[in-house]
Simulated assay, not measured.
Amino acid sequence: MQVTLLGTGDTTGTPTVGCDCATCERARDRGVERTRFSVHVERVNGDSLLIDFSPDFRQQFLRESVPLPDAAVVTHVHFDHLDGLGNVYRLVDSLPVYAADETDPQTGTSVVGTIRDRYHYLDRISVRGRTPFQRFEAAGFEVTLVPVVHPPLVSYGLRVDDPDSGASLAISGDTSYAIDENAREVLRGADLALVEGIVHADLCSHHPAGGDHYDDAGRPRTFGTKHMTLTGARALADDLAADRYRIVHTAHFVPPEQAFRDDVAVDGQRFELAGAKR
């Protein structure tokens, strides 16, 4: 299984348009980017799965030269994870798009219902609802969606397993640290874990909602109510006990001495996951 990080940034990306902060300048100097979130997963036979449709879809696929997906999964309906879906029109003959079918009390519909309503005109897309914790097949992979905590909207993490090689990928999705044990158990023990960490813990003091889920040293693991700090991301990665992990969905507010550490991902990183063949 090959995993390509197409987009590793938050809603504005890094460098952020019009920003001359030290982190954006360091990214420009290094020639690296964190565009809006998306992950491409490819099997040995060439079948591929896309996780989330970044608004930067076109740029990402041209830059990384990965094949167009045979199927896709959407984790939640925030624009930076969904609004690239329109890019596939005229590029594919057909594309199954999977998303959770649970009703969101905030919107009165599900993620899959929102996608159907918003992209009803894309006749080459077939939108398919799936129930969290129930494994399903997509592009030859076995996929399991799990609820995470990203108020006020429902949001999901997921696990992707390759049934041939036994390789596995876990993605936390956009979430606070308050992921329950049932979801963590599904995500645990993967070859690679991608965990969301939007800012450093010190920034919580400037957020109206502060931080939450403090560790033993008093460092907040949740920024506000719906994202993890770098501290929280590392703590979750430790709990999930993956062979490797990377922090994703990181904002330009992280100072450069922290923003470019080895475990904080940038676009274009690739991982070959061998797994243990069943």
Rank of each mutant, 00 (worst) to 15 (best):
G173R: 06
G7S: 03
E196T: 13
T12I: 04
Q106D: 00
H207Q: 07
G86C: 03
V266D: 10
A235F: 01
G18K: 00
A235T: 11
G224V: 15
Y245E: 02
Y214S: 13
R221H: 02
A233N: 09
F141T: 10
L169G: 07
G9Q: 01
A167I: 09
F53T: 03
A259P: 03
A22M: 00
L6R: 08
L273I: 12
E185R: 06
R63F: 03
L49D: 01
V264Y: 03
T16M: 13
V149P: 00
Y214Q: 14
A209T: 03
D10W: 04
D202G: 05
V160Q: 05
T229I: 06
R30K: 11
G13H: 06
T222A: 12
V186W: 12
C19N: 04
V127Y: 08
R234P: 15
R30C: 06
D56Q: 04
P69E: 07
T16G: 09
G140C: 07
V74S: 09
T14V: 12
A274L: 13
R26M: 07
G268Y: 10
V97P: 13
P163I: 09
I125M: 08
F53R: 03
E185D: 12
G157V: 06
Y98F: 10
H78E: 02
A178W: 05
R159N: 08
A100E: 11
E196R: 15
E272P: 00
G46P: 07
T103G: 08
D216T: 10
D162P: 15
P152Y: 02
R116M: 08
P151L: 04
G173Q: 05
T225H: 15
T222W: 11
L50C: 13
T35M: 08
H150F: 03
H206D: 14
R244E: 03
F79L: 14
S205F: 12
E64F: 09
A72M: 05
D212H: 15
G224Q: 14
L158V: 08
P255R: 14
P163G: 03
I247R: 07
S205D: 14
A237L: 08
L192R: 02
T114H: 15
K277Y: 15
S165A: 02
R261Y: 00
G211M: 13
L91D: 05
L6W: 11
D123H: 07
L187F: 02
L230N: 03
R36N: 04
V74R: 06
L158T: 10
V127F: 11
V44M: 10
H150L: 03
K226Y: 11
G210L: 15
S38C: 00
H200F: 09
V112D: 06
F253D: 15
F271Q: 02
D52E: 02
Q59A: 13
R135I: 05
E102S: 08
A193L: 02
A170K: 14
V74H: 06
N87Q: 14
D215P: 01
R124C: 05
L122Y: 04
R261Q: 07
V248H: 00
P67R: 10
I51L: 14
F223G: 04
V266G: 11
